[in-house]
Design a protein around this nucleic acid. Sequence first.
DNA 1: ATGTCC
Length: 471
Amino acid sequence: MSIDLKSENLYTQYLTRGKDEAKILGTSDIVKRSIDSGAADQLLNMSSLPGVIGLPIGLPDIHKGYGFPIGSVVAMDPDNGSISPGGVGYDINCGVALISTGVDAKTMRKYLRPLLDDLSSHIPVGTARSRNKLTESQIRTVVEEGIYWPYSMDMATEDDLIKTDFDGHLFGVDEVNISKEAYERGMNYFGTLGSGNHFLEVQRAEELIDHEASEVYGLVQDMAYIMIHTGSRGLGHQVATDYLEQIRALPHNLNLPDPQLSHIMLGSREADRYISAMNGAANYGFANRQFIIYQVRKSLTRVLGREFDAEEAQLIYNISHNLATFEDHHIEGRKRRLLVHRKGATRALPPDAVQGYYSGVGHPVLVPGSMGSASYVLRGKERNDAISMSTCSHGAGRSMGRKLARESISPERVKEEMKRMNIEYTFGNEIAAVEESRESYKNIDEVYAAITGSNIATGVAKLFPMGVLKG
DNA sequence: ATGTCC
């Protein structure tokens, strides 16, 4: 069926396909690419899920995923709506953490190669297993308590807790809702980075856009930072697989346009069980990122010695971009509670909706670019709940499928480009690096322009990679 | 995304 388009302005396009409706925040070029790739059809499929409030929204980095597009947000009526594991994705609580090093980029440059070597010898990448396997009792604590487990082990500071999305802990987890298989994968892969778009980067603050917010966040021109992108590894993947498998056999899920759109009604026993398991996987994701932050601090201490002061290596923020959560938003002039699915989409709460440490400023919104390109730190803009339910893009978004990338780009070309840009690299797998190369992704500056142009967030700082560790 | 196909 064909898709009709209506432009509201340069960065807001409405799509209609029969009775299905959706909105994409992005230029007509971004919308055109989403139609050509099939991502727009996936977004429109979401509109027929039970209990959608408003419209499914595609963000500027929208691209095709399994069932639901990556870079999408959809809110549900908590009383008569549904929840779909596909709207969260397989990597439950995938997210990004950014930490200061307190070291200037020039000094960091001298230690870059040994630092990457030290990091890669302590943080397994790709499919490599953990060097710090959890016991059965530890994994159960992690799933129930999230970041409080590393905190209890002196692997997190109090400051880390308050600068982590949801304070690094989601409630309502009953361990019986997570399978034995999921626990086993979780025990074996704790503290690992993973593959795909996951990475660890040493970055330099290249440009401060919003000087006041930069100061609050601890972003200083030409200082070095470390960004970590990873999620809940095999545990989250197994939870998603288990629940999709269980619910797709239910009668109402048998004739969907895509089995990944399988859903369950909020308030049902099945939905309660999925939410409990999803929150448990999210807690594991928070603990996993925190454990890697701890490893990074230890590496900096070992490699930089007296040039590094552990007190300076503060967290800027640890944010999630694959989660469904209950939140209050102003919709059509009134405040109401909604279940918001975000798949490859990051929260960008406006200043007045943020309590605690970043109250009145807004929490940092972390938007990594592709490998070999810039990353942005932004903050949510006032009244963005009416635009995107206070949601922002989570990255650049793919423009080329993995297969096409492998066929058209050589590892040599990627490595030459990294050298030309003076970016030190450690690739666990060269083919995987090709799939993640800059050429396979949209231009992050274009995505940034669409984010700010659509009034969902404003820029704080631009960071550029100095060194990268990839699965 | 993924012990990258039980």
